[in-house]
Amino acid sequence: MFDLIEIKDVEKVYRRDSIEAPVLSGINLMVKDGEFLALMGPSGSGKTTLLNMIAGIDKPTSGQIVVGGTDISKMSESALAKWRSSNIGFIFQFYNLIPVLTAYENVELPLLLTKLSKSERKQHVESALNIVGLSDRMKYYPKQLSGGQEQKVAIARAIVTDPVILIADEPTGDLDKNSAEEIMTLMQRLNTEFKKTIVMVTHDAHTASKARVLRRLEKGDLLPAEAEAA
């Protein structure tokens, strides 16, 4: 398997007025195609910042991030937006569904940016909702769904464009134990069955154990690789 994500000497420093706050220093990380990586670390360790940079929603202060052969650290905002729409699927802690749209419409959102016809979009949306097991909840609004179901809709939204990478930021952080288990099983299925490369941030060791590779961050440094988590 080739290295899908290559992070080379990445540093990130946040600046506010004259104060500089280094968040990440000298990060080097390779993520293979089809890998399921969990990033763990205490608050402020820089794990979400690293995740955001891999996803192309933040840029390193120095260093290089190459995804699928493309150096995304030098891309413009508009080019990044286009790149994200076809390469990245996002799964957030608080689901972040649009409350005025049904489950179907929420999943359809990323497809509005494509040239697919209405019937093609329908096919994609139904297929994504079928994968997450919510075919019977298409017309439900987010407030009519449980937390676990909302996160499943969010996962369907993340996979509907068939992206190469899934980015998950604390995907079970707002769920009860059973729902969290279901979501992690689903994510493992997406990794093994649908060959999605997943990069997940979590502070929960049990959730992290579902990934195949675990890396820890501490005070902006990436600690040496540990044994495979699962």
């Binding site: 972040n96 649009i98 990323p110 940016l113």
Partner: peptide, 16 residues
């Protein structure tokens, strides 16, 4: 604010 950020994250441009 959060919804707009999510839309931008999933690929909606400033123009959208």
């Amino acid at each position: 604010t959060r919804e707009y950020a999510v839309l931008k994250a999933i690929g909606f441009s400033g123009r959208h």
